[in-house]
């Protein structure tokens, strides 16, 4: 290594073999770069370009409007309302996912007799197609014949059937619950994998040092889970922030715009109101918010590396 460090810059003296390797390297990553450019870079630049036009979606015709779309974004209510809804949804569903995911991972880490069966079953919601999951949950939530209302009335918790997805705050609670149910298995698997690598003798040492079960969780398990939890929280936050299908299918953003997250707003603007330019401006705004999570995530993974 020291030889390389003291050599003149590599490009100046690189041997034919080194140049051949470099060419091979470029050749090998070229397909990825090409696909990446086509599906990520081009749409991104196109969105920024579109956002300074007023475009009618069906014809894709329209005129240049400058910053008008961004002025609307900043001064209008739609973007800010959707941002608020998105944050409530993300924080709510993510919190539930983490609490349920860590809790269940801890349970499945114990020596319980149905452990291997439970470990497979817990993945079920994650594997289920969103459409199927939403259909099942819509049936459960139904205000006329839904099992949820039936159960709650049987238990005497409510007198009258509740309108779960058609009124607030029930609709938000509903989507948060379904989101948590759908995505907590991801947390379980990641946390369980980490739990299995914590050396058993740390717990034994803690027992000898006088730590009870709760102290052992706070003093050993949780600090050991810290790095994996940070990554899970950031990843899930990014994914939940841009969640579309589950919310669209369950409430369509309603009632009115009470569960209309930014993804739904962009969709509504582009294909409901046929305003592609305004939709592009919203999506650029959304991307800037997500950039915060991305920077945090990249920092975190860099730190680990």
């Amino acid at each position: 290594m020291t030889a390389i460090a003291t050599d003149p810059p590599r490009s100046a003296v690189s041997s034919p073999l080194e140049r051949a390797y470099a060419r091979l390297g470029v050749l090998l990553i070229a397909p990825t770069i090409l696909v990446f450019t086509l599906v990520i870079v081009y749409p991104l630049l196109a969105a920024i370009y579109l956002s300074v036009f007023s475009i009618y979606t069906p014809t894709l015709q329209g005129g240049f409007v400058g910053a008008d779309n961004y002025v609307e974004l900043l001064t209008g209510k739609a973007f800010w309302n959707s941002l608020r809804v998105t944050l409530i949804w993300t924080v709510g569903t993510l919190t539930l996912q983490i609490v349920a995911g860590v809790g269940l991972a801890l349970l499945l880490h114990q020596n319980i007799w149905f452990r291997s069966l439970a470990r497979s079953l817990v993945l079920f919601p994650y594997f289920l197609s969103t459409v199927v999951a939403v259909l099942v949950w819509k049936w459960l939530f139904n205000d006329l014949y839904g099992a949820l209302n039936h159960g709650l009335m049987q238990l005497g918790i409510i007198d009258m059937p509740l309108d779960w997805l058609g009124s607030m705050p029930n609709a938000m609670i509903g989507v948060i619950l379904v989101g948590a149910w759908k995505y907590f298995p991801f947390v379980v698997i990641a946390v369980l994998a980490r739990l299995q690598t914590i050396p058993e003798n740390l717990y034994e040492a803690a027992r000898i040092d006088g730590a009870g079960p709760i102290a052992r969780f706070w003093d050993i398990t949780l600090p050991q889970l810290r790095s994996v939890l940070t990554v899970i929280i950031l990843l899930r936050a990014i994914w939940d922030f841009k969640e579309f299908d589950l919310l669209y299918l369950l409430t369509g953003g309603g009632p009115v715009t009470s569960t209309q997250t930014l993804s739904l707003l962009v969709y509504q603007e582009a294909f409901g109101l046929n305003q592609m330019g305004q939709a592009a401006a919203y999506s650029v705004g959304m991307m800037l918010v997500m950039l915060v999570f991305m920077v945090l995530y990249i920092r975190q993974t860099k730190e680990k590396a």
Partner: peptide, 10 residues
Amino acid sequence: MVFQSYALYP
């Protein structure tokens, strides 16, 4: 107790 692997809290 002192463990073979030391079992220090990392």
